[in-house]
Amino acid sequence: MNISLFNQMIKLNMKNFLIFGFGSALYVVLMTSLYPMFAENAEAINELIKIIPETLKNALGFDSLTSYGGFISAEYFGLFFPIILGVFSVMTATQLLAHLVDKGSMAYLLSTKVSRTQIAFTQALVLISGLLFIVLLTFLGGIVAGEMLIDDQTSLEFNTFFHICLVGFLLFFVVGGYSFLVSSLCNDEKKSLGIAAALTFIFYGLDMAGKISSDFEWLRNITPFSLYNPSGIASGDAEIFIPSFILLGIGFFNYSAAVVVFKLRNLPL
């Protein structure tokens, strides 16, 4: 990796890191602050939830809304968190390679003794740092808000919350990974953005479809999103170690492939 490039890239992307990071943290705080009101009317809400078909409840993770853990994992970690992090991953991955190749600025970065491998590796680190930063802010936001706004009895354990964030991070480590691979393959920025976004949308959709109908349950085997189950982690039902390990593996594979592709291909600079 090249430290000058890393520092400058972090600096250039810091605005996005902060916007997405604080956005996500703020959302957690907001949702957390809604929970006490929610808990007071738990009965009425449970009645309401009964009306929702079972399958849809599964898809949205509404099966355990009565606890704070169930609430926050359904309302935030199952819904907005993937959207925020998905947008960030796809956008930033495109920005870090395809954009520079498309615009031609990569010619400057590749005019020194710094190798293509080092450049791709550095850019991957920038993306991963960004993801880590955003998830960290989300985690801190959730912990602080939970501490201040939620009764100790219903609050989520520190470890459980940490696990949700960890697996969440690893999922977007993977999303960032394939987006980065797409970005390293594309000469055209818009194409890179389009393909990565479409892939993410499809993977997310496959997970949803698999949850809604048991006929399509097999679909969940081909999407990384099924390895991330915040409601399951909150209720203590979900396995953490194996999915994390698989996500980590897929992620590493994607970033490595991206570096190799970037090293070997012709660049239109």
């Binding site: 090249n2 430290i3 000058s4 490039l5 520092n7 400058q8 250039l12 400057y108 970065l109 020194t112």
Partner: peptide
């Protein structure tokens, strides 16, 4: 970026 930041980036890479 501004010119100086870019020049410094390139100096670092060189």
């Amino acid at each position: 970026m501004n010119g100086l930041e870019f020049i410094n980036l390139m100096a670092g890479m060189q």
